[in-house]
Amino acid sequence: MRKSGEPYYTHPMGVAKIVLEATKNADTILAALLHDVIEDTMVTLEQIELLYGMEVAYIVDMLTHYNTYGLRWKLDHSDSQIILNQCKDIRVVQIKLADRLHNLRTIAVRKLADQKRIAKNTMEFYIPWSKKNNVLTWLSEMENICYQILHANPTL
Rank of each mutant, 00 (worst) to 15 (best):
A16M: 08
V19Y: 13
V19E: 13
V19S: 13
E21W: 10
K24A: 13
N25C: 08
L30G: 08
L30C: 13
L34M: 06
L34V: 00
D36W: 06
I38A: 05
E39D: 12
D40I: 04
D40P: 00
L45Q: 08
E46D: 14
E46V: 03
Q47W: 09
Q47H: 06
I48C: 05
I48V: 11
I48Y: 08
L50M: 08
E55I: 01
E55N: 05
V56I: 13
V56A: 10
A57T: 03
Y58V: 00
D61R: 12
T64F: 07
H65E: 12
R72H: 15
W73T: 08
K74A: 09
K74Y: 10
S80E: 01
S80N: 06
I83K: 14
L84M: 12
Q86T: 09
K88N: 11
K88L: 10
I95R: 13
K96Y: 05
K96Q: 14
L97P: 07
L97H: 07
D99G: 05
D99R: 04
L101T: 01
L101R: 05
H102A: 02
H102P: 00
N103L: 06
I107M: 09
A108K: 03
V109T: 12
L112P: 12
A113T: 07
A113P: 00
A113N: 07
D114M: 11
Q115K: 14
Q115G: 06
K116T: 05
I118M: 06
A119Y: 00
A119D: 01
A119M: 01
K120C: 00
K120Y: 07
N121C: 07
T122Q: 05
T122I: 02
T122G: 06
M123L: 09
F125C: 02
Y126W: 15
W129M: 02
W129A: 01
W129Q: 01
W129S: 01
K131V: 14
N133Q: 15
N134T: 15
V135D: 10
L136F: 11
W138Y: 15
W138P: 05
L139V: 13
L139G: 10
S140K: 15
S140D: 14
E141R: 02
E143K: 15
N144P: 00
Y147M: 11
Y147T: 13
Y147A: 07
Y147L: 08
Q148W: 07
